[in-house]
């Protein structure tokens, strides 16, 4: 692997685990909680966000020299809003059913701080290639988080995944899971597990470091 490929890989992979926008940065909570009551909604929302983030990062990185820093935030928002509108109409035309479920949360992608955050923190300072890798990594991490939440909530709340019944008709759905409180509960528990695992790993690394120190 050459050095630049390595860098690409790093920018991509950091969004999935180490800097995961949801589990680590705790950004984009509004769509995270609002539309994850089924796996398909989560995927649709994740896909729309991916499209907007990658498109915006590409444009921002490409035109960063032309955008004066005094008006950069306004320009970022104009770019993001354009992509969001495109996503909104495309979903409405192609999958009206899903669009109806997602409702107001598609236009609200504009307000997803994860997207503006990536423009400000990364795309406006890096090359087009790295920015796109970063955007792809971040949105993949976002999709994974949305899907995890959506899958857990749909399995418990409706006994199905992607609308396919998993346990048969006898399954008693946990109604709370597809209601808003279920989103908060599930997200809280996932964050708990994520932090617990990070903590465990840290403890382990410290122990290893200590053993090495005392050994040498």
């Amino acid at each position: 692997m050459t050095e630049s490929e390595n860098r690409d890989y790093n920018e991509f992979i950091k969004g999935i685990w180490r800097d995961n926008p949801v589990f680590v940065q705790v950004l984009g909570m509004c769509p995270m909680l609002a539309v994850t009551n089924s796996a398909i909604n989560a995927i649709a929302m994740g896909g729309a966000t991916l499209f907007v983030l990658v498109g915006s990062s590409f444009l921002v990185a490409a035109f960063k020299k032309l955008i004066p820093k005094q008006v950069r935030i306004s320009c970022f928002i104009i770019i993001i809003a354009t992509f969001v509108t495109v996503a909104d109409y495309t979903l409405l035309a192609l999958v009206p059913g899903v669009h109806k479920e997602l409702g107001a949360f598609i236009p609200l992608i504009v307000a997803n701080c994860m997207i503006l955050g990536r423009q400000e923190a990364f795309a406006s300072k890096n090359t087009v290639r790295l920015s796109v890798m970063d955007a792809l990594g971040m949105s993949t991490g976002f999709v994974i988080a949305l899907f995890t939440l959506g899958a857990v909530r749909e399995i418990l709340g409706a006994g199905s995944l992607f609308g396919i019944s998993l346990f048969g008709a006898a399954w008693e759905p946990w109604v709370i899971m597809i209601l808003p409180p279920g989103g908060f509960l599930t997200l809280g528990l996932i964050l708990l597990v994520f932090n617990w695992m990070t903590h465990r790993k840290q403890m382990f690394m410290e122990k290893v470091a200590e053993a090495q120190r005392s050994g040498s």
Binding site: P68, V71, T85
Partner: peptide
């Protein structure tokens, strides 16, 4: 500044009308 914003707005408008 104004020209930049106006251009961005114009391009965005065209894109939105297109879609």
């Amino acid at each position: 500044l104004i020209v930049t914003l106006a251009l961005a707005g114009l391009i965005s408008g065209v894109a939105i009308v297109g879609i």
